[in-house]
Design a protein around this nucleic acid. Sequence first.
DNA 1: CGCATAAGTTGTTTCAAGCAACAAAACGGC
DNA 2: GCCGTTTTGTTGCTTGAAACAACTTATGCG
Lengths: 402, 402
Amino acid sequence: MDQPSSRAARQESLREHNLALVAREVLSASRPLSRAEVAARTGLNRATVSRLVAELVAGRLVIEDAPVVAGAGRPATPLRPASCTVGGLGLEVSLDFLGARVLDLAGQVVAEEVVAGDHRASAAAAVLGDLGRLAQQVAGRAAAQGTQVAGSALALPGLVAHSRLLVAPNLGWREVDPAAHLHELPGARLRLDNEARLAALAELAVAESRSFLYVSGGVGIGAAVVQDGAFATGVHNFAGELGHVCVDPAGPRCRCGATGCLETFAGTAAILRAADLPEASDLSQVRSAVEQGNEKAERAVARAASALGIALAALVNLVDVSDVVLGNTLAELIEPMRPMVEAELSTRVLAAQWAPVSLRVAATAAHPALTGAARAALAPVIADPAGWLAGPGQGGFGKLSQ
Amino acid sequence: MDQPSSRAARQESLREHNLALVAREVLSASRPLSRAEVAARTGLNRATVSRLVAELVAGRLVIEDAPVVAGAGRPATPLRPASCTVGGLGLEVSLDFLGARVLDLAGQVVAEEVVAGDHRASAAAAVLGDLGRLAQQVAGRAAAQGTQVAGSALALPGLVAHSRLLVAPNLGWREVDPAAHLHELPGARLRLDNEARLAALAELAVAESRSFLYVSGGVGIGAAVVQDGAFATGVHNFAGELGHVCVDPAGPRCRCGATGCLETFAGTAAILRAADLPEASDLSQVRSAVEQGNEKAERAVARAASALGIALAALVNLVDVSDVVLGNTLAELIEPMRPMVEAELSTRVLAAQWAPVSLRVAATAAHPALTGAARAALAPVIADPAGWLAGPGQGGFGKLSQ
DNA sequence: CGCATAAGTTGTTTCAAGCAACAAAACGGC
DNA sequence: GCCGTTTTGTTGCTTGAAACAACTTATGCG
C-alpha cells in the first residue's frame, strides 16, 4: 500500500525526489551505469538525468569513470559511487565485542576496529566511554583517507526508542542515553537501533530478495521484518522481539519475567545448557556433537528447533513473510534444525500451501550489524542528496527514515 | 516511514499528488473546510488550492455550501464531500449473512440490503450468485438516487490473494474466484479482502487513533494491523492470521491441522462448547452466565482470555502496537476477559512498561466489514482523483435526477 | 569514407506552483 | 452611514523543473 506523504509537493520536492531516485539507482547498482541506462531504468529523460548526475558529481557523491567502448555508438561514461569521500560510521556494543567501522558510498570499508570484551552485566558508562574512543580513532583514520563522516549509527542488543536504550537484558543495561557518553561524534546526530535490524540492513544490501525476515539468534533472539526494502518498525520502534514470543506457556521462566519465551528454548545459553556438553561454549560444538550422534545434544537441538518453528509460524501467520534468514550464532544449527522447523511451519502456517516459507543462512560477513549501522548512517545522504549537497556537516536531514 | 516511490516524478505527478492531498483533506475532514483552511492544513498556496478545488467541484467529488458568516472578513465558502454522486459498493459473505451496501463520499449509506443465512459448509457458486443479485439490486437503488458506483469490494472470512479466495475454513470454501460468479458489477474491477481488514478500515474512519490492531473475533479470529492509517498486509496479503497463532502446542487440534491455535480456545464455537450452557448460541449468554457466577462459563472465559493474552502478546512483541480494538462477537466478553488479557500482556510483552497496551471495544456499527468494503471501493477515487476525473466517469449513468 | 548507432548536451516548450496585488464581503468604530 | 480592517478567494506574472527535439560526439562497420 502506497502511503502518500501528506505534505504539499512543490517543484523543489520534485527535484529532490528525482535526485534521490537517480542517486539510489547509481549508488546501489551492482555495476557502473551510464546516464542513458539510468534514464532507461528510472523513466526520466536523458537530459534530466544528465542535469541531476552533474549535481551528484559536483557534490562528490558519484564519480565518472573513463568512457568504455562497447559496440557501436558513442562510448558510455560509467558512473559509480564515489569512494572515500563520504562515509557512514557504524558502531556496535555487543555482548562480547565493541566495534566501529566506516563504510563509504561504494560499501567499502574505509577504516574499522573491533575490540573483544565481555559486556555481560557491565557498566554502561565505562563501555560507552571505550566505544567513544574507538569511534574517534576510526573516524580519524577515515578522515586521513579523505572520507568525511556524514553521520553515525549505533547497534545495540536491546529495545531502542527515539535516542534512548530502554533495556538490554543481556547487557544488564536499562534506560541509557548513549549520546551522553559518546561526545563529539562527527557528522549529524547519532542514530540508535536494534542489532537485529541493522544486521538485516547489511543483509538487504547483499541479498537478492528485498523482503525477508532476518533472525539474529544469539543469547537473545531478535528479528527484523524487511518488506520491499523497508523495515516494519512498529509504532514505537519495538517490533521484532521474536525472542520473547511465548512458545509454551508451561515452559521455563525467562529473565524477562514471562514463561516459555523462545529464548528459553533456542537462545544460545539455553541450547548449551540443554546439550550439557562439558566445556562446550559454542554452538558449533553442539553441531559436531549432533553429527556424532550425541543424544542429549540431539534432544537440545530438537527442542530448540520445535520452539523456533512455533515462534516463526506465529510470525509468518501474523506478518506474512516467506523468506526467513538465520543469522548470528544460531545459523550454525540451521541444518540439524531444518527438518523440524520446516515441519512446524508447514503445519502451523495457514497459508503454507500457497506461500511456502524458505529458510536460509545469512550472507556470512563479520559483524553484520556494524556494516548495517554504517549503512544506516549513510542512508540519509542517499535518501536526500539535495539536503546533503546543500549543507554538508549541518543536520539538514529531518528524516531518519528507512 | 517515507517509502520513496521508485518512479520518476514529473510535473503531472506533482499535480496528481497535490490534488489527492486536497481531496483527502476535504473528504475526510470532520466538518466542512474553506479553501483557506485547506491551504493552511496542507501548506499549499491559497491560489493553488483554489485551482485544485475547482477541479474537484467540476468533477462532482466536492460541493460548495452557501457561504457562512463567521466574524470579520469575507465569509468562507464551506467545502464538503458530495453526497450521492459517487459511491462505493461494499459486499460481504459472512458465516450468517450476505450484505451489500453503497456509501457515498460523505460516508453516508445510499442503499443497503442484508440477508441472513447460514453459509457454513456452503456451495460457493450458489452463495455468490445470491450475492450478485443482491449487489445488482442495491446498485440499482443507488443509481436511482443519482449515485454512480465507482467500484466494489468484497469482504470474505478467509485468505485472499490477488483476486482469488484461497481458503475460508469456516465457509468450507477453497480456491474460489468470486469475480467469475459476480457478473456485471458496476464500476471498475472488484477488490477482495479479508473481513477483519475491511472491518478495521471502517474502524479507522471513526477512531481517533490512526494506529491500532483490530481483532475480529467470531468463529474464526482475524486481525489487521493498522499503522499510521495504512495496513500491514505482508508479502502476499496474508498478514493478520491471529486465529492460527499457536497458544499452547499441547492444545486441541484445530481444523487447520495444527494444534493449540488461538481459535481452539477463543473462537466463538470453542467458548460456547467449553461453557457448556444448554441452548446458548451467543456469547452474550455466556457473559450473562459469568455475571451470574456460572463456574463452567467462568472457566471457559478464563481459558479464552489467557489464550487471547498470549497470542496478543506475541503479536505486540512482533509488530509493536499499543492499541488493541476488539470487534465482532468476541467484543461481548471484553470486560470479563480484560483482567486476564491485560495480565498476560503486561508480563509477556517485553516493552510493556514503556508502551502499555490498551484494550477497547470497536465502535459499534452493524456489519463493519460491509462499511469498510464500501470505503475500500471508494478509496481509489480519493487516492487518485485525477485518474477518476479523467477516466471512466461521467458516462454510464446519464444525467442525475434532481 | 560514409553511414548507422548510441551517448550525452543544448535550446525551447510546457506545465504546475508560488507570489503579489487585487476584488469581495463581512465587521467595527466614530 | 462612511471608512479602515480583516479574511477569503481570484487574477496575472514569475519561477522552476522536466519533456522534447535537434544537435554534437564518438564509435563500429561495410
